Computed example of a mutant assay.
Amino acid sequence: MEQSPAFATSVNKQKIVVIMGSTGAGKSRLSIDLATRYFKNSEIINSDKMQVYTGLDITTNKITMEEQFNVPHHLLSTIDPTKTVLAPSDFRKLASEIISDVKSRHGLPLVVGGSCSLIYSLVTNEFDPNSDVFNGPLPDPVSTELCYDCCFIWVDVCLPVLNQYLSKRVDEMLDAGMFKELVDYFQSGECERVFESGLGQSIGVPEFETYFKKFPDTPADPNRKQISSSEDSDEENVEYNEAIRRIKENTYVLAKKQVSKIAKLKDAGWNVKRIDATEVFRAAVTAECGSEKVAELWEKLVLERSVKIVEEFLAE
């Protein structure tokens, strides 16, 4: 069992903000809004277990350099997927060192990501790498003894609305070059060099594996769209469409699992502040709602409430 970092044993635990939520729920957007507009000494520590690796930036939906607005980001595209798999205990060590460094410069660490296993490993006072509080027929009990003074913000979206948005997001990722990225990944042989239990688990990779085994010489057409016409029912298009269907379905499943894990932490006694962003996302998937309306709802229902929570937390 791994003890908490030495600096966390003092009476005054270090304050960190942890932004949680399922895939696609707006965690990165919220963190950037907080860091650029309200808490300008913030630095972001990625806690998405796929985004820690280099490569597949579009497939893993990493925030772009432009979207980062010069806010420092840590543990984002830093781990070589051909060298190692980042275990929760590894993340705990690396992230705790980063937090200590950020705090030494009087910064505010924002831990941002959907991996509850990484978050749990980081903030629990004593972390046992052999325990599993989320999976299995008899999961271990959730520890409520934390080594940091944590402000947990959960950006939540009701699943039916979120699933509509996630379907749209997959289409947007394809438009942004996800298919070309996967062509390069499989045809370059990179897929043979990465660990299956690491980057090889990224949604998009297993789903397209059969396609690329059958059609290894597929040209990297960045403009390829999902084809639903009965005229285009040849085997390659059928396999392509099936891969996209599985990507969307597995993304829905992932989101549901992530929500259940966060709910488990909250039910166990973690002081998780839930922000309901459903109406924002409902507007985002509704054709008649423009971007200005969506931005207005985000400001009122998500950002303003989150700012208040963080301000109260820092003032305690």
Results as ranks from 00 to 15, higher is better:
P5T: 03
A6R: 14
T9Q: 09
S10W: 03
Q14K: 13
Q14L: 13
I16M: 09
V18Q: 03
M20Y: 02
T23H: 02
G24L: 06
I32H: 03
A35Y: 04
A35N: 07
K40P: 02
N41K: 14
I44H: 09
S47V: 05
S47E: 02
M50I: 04
Q51E: 05
G55T: 04
D57R: 12
T59W: 00
M65D: 12
E66V: 03
P72S: 08
H73V: 06
T78W: 03
T78F: 06
K83V: 09
T84I: 15
A87N: 08
P88Y: 07
D90K: 09
K93V: 05
L94T: 07
A95I: 05
D101N: 11
S104R: 13
V111I: 14
V111D: 08
V112N: 14
G114N: 08
Y120A: 12
V123C: 10
E126I: 13
E126Q: 13
E126A: 14
P129G: 04
S131I: 00
S131K: 10
L138G: 00
P139W: 00
P139G: 03
V142G: 04
T144F: 00
T144V: 12
L146D: 04
D149N: 15
C150H: 07
W154K: 10
W154V: 11
V157Q: 10
C158L: 11
V161W: 03
Q164S: 09
L166D: 03
D171V: 01
M173V: 01
M173S: 12
M173W: 01
G177E: 07
F179W: 08
D184H: 14
F186R: 13
S188Y: 06
E192I: 08
R193G: 02
V194Y: 04
S197W: 01
S197D: 09
S197Q: 12
L199D: 02
G200F: 01
F208G: 04
E209L: 14
F212M: 11
T218V: 15
A220D: 10
D221M: 08
N223L: 09
N223H: 12
I227R: 14
S230V: 14
E235G: 06
V238D: 06
E239S: 14
N241L: 02
R245L: 05
Y252C: 10
Y252K: 15
V259L: 14
K261D: 10
K264T: 11
K266V: 03
D267L: 11
W270P: 13
W270H: 12
N271P: 00
A277S: 15
T278K: 05
E279W: 03
V280Q: 05
V285M: 05
A287R: 12
C289M: 06
E292Q: 10
K293S: 10
K293G: 00
A295P: 00
E299C: 03
E299I: 00
L301P: 00
E304S: 13
K308W: 00
K308N: 07
